[in-house]
């Protein structure tokens, strides 16, 4: 059973990572910085629980806020460039964050041992869950409560005017300006929200693995972050979550018997999927077909 709890936790924080990229993607910005925000969340939360002895929940909020603040700061200069330039700029930002933690030492003596981040060695002993006697089931329920809250908030946002504004900016910046939308404000807000969500995800991740190091937060993770919403399609948050379950549950865990070959398969599958379904696994046409199947929104078809 513990295996499934653990898998559900993995899916949980990857879902947060994917959702953080989803918000930003709605505005038409491809951000490879999400792994960086995730890293900031992981380190900040772990430092609060391990070094400052905080409860996990406030530590998570602090992590989310720290990542959001960083996202907001990065948002202003980064959003001056668009399209592929933004991809590259955010990729470089993510790498800069990773390298920062590669060089980041902050150790404090706790009893006989020293704890805290130690450069390339990483940050060990993030043991808040076991220290507080949480079982795998408890952790899983906690993680999914957070995921449900975030996904629910985004679902609601999607249906509000702000959600439509995000999509409008993503679709045509010129027209959006002409109907009075402030591009910078909208994009930076999306980036900040995305940063917050990624920070929460990172906080959970740190406490799940108990040991984080810079190499966990590289280009691969950044790719995962945008791959989920792109594979799942940008119709709604469920697409992203389905994509996470598919990738983490099926490709990564389900195909474990393939051993090393599994990683090969992952890249190949992305290439294949993009050739066959350039607009995501669940594109507009599929979504409409599904909707008709369930009899809802028949008039849209």
């Amino acid at each position: 059973m513990d295996f499934y709890y653990s898998l559900a936790q993995i899916i949980g924080f990857h879902a947060l990572l994917g959702l953080s990229a989803y918000v930003v993607l709605l505005t038409g910005q491809v951000s490879l910085a999400q792994a960086g925000f995730f890293a900031i969340g992981a380190y900040v939360a772990a430092m609060f629980t391990v070094l400052a002895g905080w409860h996990l929940v406030p530590a998570m909020l602090a992590a989310g806020l720290a990542a959001a603040a960083m996202a907001c700061i990065v948002g202003f200069p980064a959003l001056r460039v668009r399209g592929l330039m933004l991809v590259i700029a955010t990729l470089a930002f993510g790498e800069a964050v990773r390298l920062f933690f590669f060089n980041f030492d902050y150790q404090v003596a706790k009893g006989e041992v020293k704890v805290g981040p130690l450069g390339g060695e990483g940050f060990r002993q993030i043991r808040w869950f076991p220290e507080h006697g949480w079982t795998g089931l408890d952790v899983m329920l906690f993680v999914w409560t957070v995921v449900a809250l975030v996904a629910g908030a985004l679902w609601w946002l999607d249906r509000s005017r702000f959600g439509a504004v995000l999509r409008a900016v993503g679709e045509d910046e010129l027209a959006a300006q002409s109907v009075g939308l402030n591009l910078t404000a909208v994009k930076v807000t999306a980036m900040t929200i995305g940063g917050f969500i990624a920070g929460l995800g990172g906080a959970i991740y740190a406490h799940y693995t108990t040991h984080i190091e810079h190499s966990n937060f590289g280009v691969l993770l950044a790719t995962f972050a945008i791959a989920y919403p792109i594979l799942g399609g940008l119709r709604n948050v469920l697409g992203t979550i389905v994509a996470v379950i598919f990738v983490q549950g099926f490709l990564v865990e389900g195909l474990r018997f393939l051993g090393d070959w599994r990683n090969l398969l992952f890249g190949a599958l992305i290439v294949l999927a993009m050739n066959l379904r350039p607009n995501g696994l669940i594109d507009a046409a599929t979504a409409r077909r599904l909707a008709r199947l369930f009899g809802r929104e028949a008039r849209r078809a």
């Binding site: 005017r161 999509r167 409008a168 679709e171 959006a176 109907v179 009075g180």
Partner: peptide, 17 residues
């Protein structure tokens, strides 16, 4: 230059500024 992936209604909603 409409927002082609938004509904007609939502297109008008955008202009409420």
């Amino acid at each position: 230059r409409l927002f082609t992936n938004l509904t007609v209604w939502e297109n008008l909603w955008m202009a409420e500024n």
